[in-house]
Computed example of a mutant assay.
Amino acid sequence: MIKSKGYAAKDSASALEYMEFERRELGANDVLIDILYSGICHSDIHQVHNEWGGTHYPIVPGHEIVGKITAVGTAVNKFKIGDLAGVGCMVASCGNCENCKSDQQQFCLEKKTVWTYNSVDVMHDHSVTFGGYSNNIVADANFVLHVPESLDIKKVAPLLCAGITTYSPLKRWNVGKGHHVGVLGLGGLGHMAVKIAVAMGAQVTMISHSPKKKNDATLLGAHHFLNTNDAQELEKYKASFDFIIDTVSVPHDYNLYLGLLKTRGVHICVGIPAAPMEINGRSIMGGNKILTASSIGGIQETQDMLNFCAEHNILPETELIDIDYVNEAYQRVLDSDVKYRFVIDMASIEK
């Protein structure tokens, strides 16, 4: 077994604290990664506190992982020792079903997607996976990503969740020049949606109820700002958008935003509230509008996203922290007091 150090929660009420544990041995198709940086995602907090149910304790969170490869299995030929590499939300799947073969491993039809943490590894030893708040990780090489050397490695990690979550639907719907995209909510997902949509050539409007976010939206590249608390502005933007990327994860009025779409416009949810959506059918029927949602992307699409970000010099706005600050960082995420993602310097675990 491979010895590891990380930060874990022992139960739903406890803080994250230092823990030593073991990872499975390197298999023929695996790589061992020395983790340099790990991003904090809001879903880490949900799972640490068992807010979605099904959390296995102890839990080592983290599915935004960047590091260097320190060992490769005997059958691995796409990576070598010393390569910069990334691991996102999943580390294995069956590889044989229709979805896995079409780069949709996150929807494995055999229900064998192995998530990077808090997941039973049915493809290997049936242990529960531990994530990136740690000094190393073992992963199937087919689920490991090449990190372009041109990107600032200190900032890359959030691309592996926030980046792909927003890139995937924009790419799937062929967003580009001539489209007007509204981005609802300026946070970890929203700020990436602005940057990526602008790079794709779209006209982008940040949609927010907080006028104080207008300056940040402009700095991120948004062309316009819609204050939803201003009735006149709402009227002005009726039937304006080809697409709305909805990053809000608390209950909100979908019918209001559907009214801002053009005929055949598309409202794409990437932030999903826990409460059921309340939709008036006429909000969709009037104009043949589409209400849809999107999860993360497959492995090849995630690699495409990293290459796209390297080509357009797109990186998230981040705050770098030591691992012993992680519990304070969690509270600041809950307080919306970060612009816009935390990244943990995993070298700090040696302190």
Rank of each mutant, 00 (worst) to 15 (best):
G27M: 12
T129P: 01
I81V: 15
H224G: 03
Q104T: 04
E233R: 09
K339P: 09
L306C: 01
V76Q: 00
P251S: 13
G297C: 00
L291M: 13
F243N: 03
V181E: 10
T263F: 09
T292H: 10
G259T: 02
D337W: 12
H252S: 10
I323N: 06
H146Y: 00
W173S: 01
K5L: 14
I59H: 01
K238F: 01
A222T: 03
L170G: 06
D216L: 02
Q331F: 08
R282K: 13
V87R: 03
V72D: 01
G221W: 03
I40M: 13
L256Y: 05
H252A: 04
I321Y: 11
K212P: 02
K78M: 05
M277V: 07
S93L: 05
E278D: 11
F21R: 00
I81P: 11
I296K: 01
G287A: 04
D337A: 15
S348V: 08
G67H: 06
P251H: 03
I153C: 06
V266C: 14
D44H: 12
I164L: 04
L226R: 00
D11M: 01
T247S: 10
D83V: 03
S348L: 05
S294E: 02
E278S: 08
R264D: 11
R332K: 15
G39W: 04
S127N: 12
D34W: 08
K351W: 03
M90W: 06
K262D: 00
A239H: 14
H224Y: 12
F107K: 11
M192F: 02
E98C: 12
D216C: 02
V120P: 09
G297W: 02
K177V: 13
M200R: 09
W115Q: 07
E149T: 14
E235Q: 14
S249I: 02
F342T: 08
C97R: 14
T70R: 08
H63V: 00
L234R: 03
V128P: 02
N307F: 05
D324A: 02
A71E: 14
C89W: 15
P61Q: 09
I284G: 08
A275P: 00
A92K: 05
L219N: 10
N215K: 08
V128T: 15
F342W: 00
S43E: 10
R332T: 00
V122C: 13
D324R: 14
G82V: 05
S336N: 15
Y325N: 13
H180D: 07
L84K: 05
S249L: 02
S12Y: 03
M346D: 04
H46M: 11
I207Y: 08
A28E: 13
A28W: 05
I35W: 12
I268N: 07
G27P: 10
L320Y: 05
D125E: 06
T116S: 14
Y254H: 12
I65C: 12
N29Y: 14
Y237N: 07
V270C: 07
Q106Y: 09
I164M: 00
K154V: 07
S168W: 08
G86F: 05
G187I: 10
I268E: 00
T218Q: 10
G286H: 11
I137C: 06
K262T: 10
H63C: 04
G62K: 02
